[in-house]
Design a protein around this nucleic acid. Structure first.
Lengths: 167, 167
DNA sequence: TCATAACATGTTATAACATAACACCTACTT
DNA sequence: AAGTAGGTGTTATGTTATAACATGTTATGA
């Protein structure tokens, strides 16, 4: 999965991080959140979240179902969609519309209007912070329209892919 | 379809316009473009574009297929998807990811990275101009990542809907 | 003019994504 | 105990999209 670690320039935005820390942090965060809000962090919900945070890339609902099946859970479609809806509602999972796929949230504030950068070659996805990325959205209020949710997805090619291939 | 035209405040962004002018303009524009680029504006392509620009709201591929069928065209799925892909490639149609639907472009410069405002109640969609709307995207270049296409969709409730209903 | 290449459309079948509807179980409440 | 709410399981089906191949049409050039 991480074939290109030797020497090549890598895009900052897709930089690796310590999966161990990332994973543990994320689990702790979600546990605290559920505790505080008096929500059930059931084995199924935990497993779905773990599957997503482990892979750290967007997974289709049916991929998640396969993983669930391998781990002894039921794997009929509603199982995945229900849990995903629930986790999305609380900001721990986001849907990447352009890929019909789901990704664990990597943002500690659980924005409900994240922005994503998607490499159309390796399908890696990065959740970007407004500030850091240089992207900026003006007020979410557009002339009498109340914006509840903003979907922002930037598709292109990451440096690793563009430098590695003949295009 | 346009039940609320009497007196209520309407959201500027969804303001009505002269469909006749809009339609004619759009057809003329696309004709000119195809001519200039030496592309074929075939009856099928024309019809699909007309269906979209007439309705002036996002239509699902299968809705377009029904309309095609009613007008004597073939209505098997690939027909619609192929034409839609073609029209999208040239910027005359956009896909609204959040609705799995397609809409004719209302922007004369055929941006390939438009922004949309979507009312989740009436499902009206407006294509907004960066400048006018107060939305702004910074450079499409994010640290070594070449952005090719940006999807921006803002979902919420328009004034007409929020003032009309009990929510 | 006929071969051919490129493009456009037609058709069948199927893949991929998502939800409706109902059943059952558990935990908590009154 | 009966009632309610939340969570999961299951079957069936609905919706969206594409693969693969067949046929037609137009432009080009030998």
């Amino acid at each position: 999965m991480n074939k290109k670690r030797e020497g090549k320039t890598t895009s900052k935005i897709f930089d690796d991080h310590d999966h161990g820390i990332c994973f543990d942090d994320a689990i702790e965060q979600i546990e605290n959140y559920f505790l505080k809000k008096n929500l059930q962090f059931t084995p199924l919900r935990r497993k779905v979240f773990e599957i997503l945070i482990k892979d750290h890339k967007p997974l289709g609902a049916y991929e998640i179902l396969e993983a669930l099946g391998r781990d002894g859970f039921s794997s009929s479609p509603p199982i995945a969609y229900r849990v995903l809806d629930f986790l999305m509602k609380h900001g721990f999972v986001h849907k990447i519309q352009g890929l019909n796929a789901f990704i664990a949230c990597s943002n500690p504030n659980h924005s409900h209007s994240p922005a994503f950068v998607i490499c159309r070659k390796c399908e890696k996805v990065a959740e970007v912070d407004e500030r850091k990325s240089g992207i900026s959205f003006a007020s979410p209020n557009i002339e009498n329209f109340e914006v509840e949710k903003t979907t922002v997805e930037m598709t292109g090619v990451c440096t690793t892919c563009s430098s590695a291939a003949i295009m």
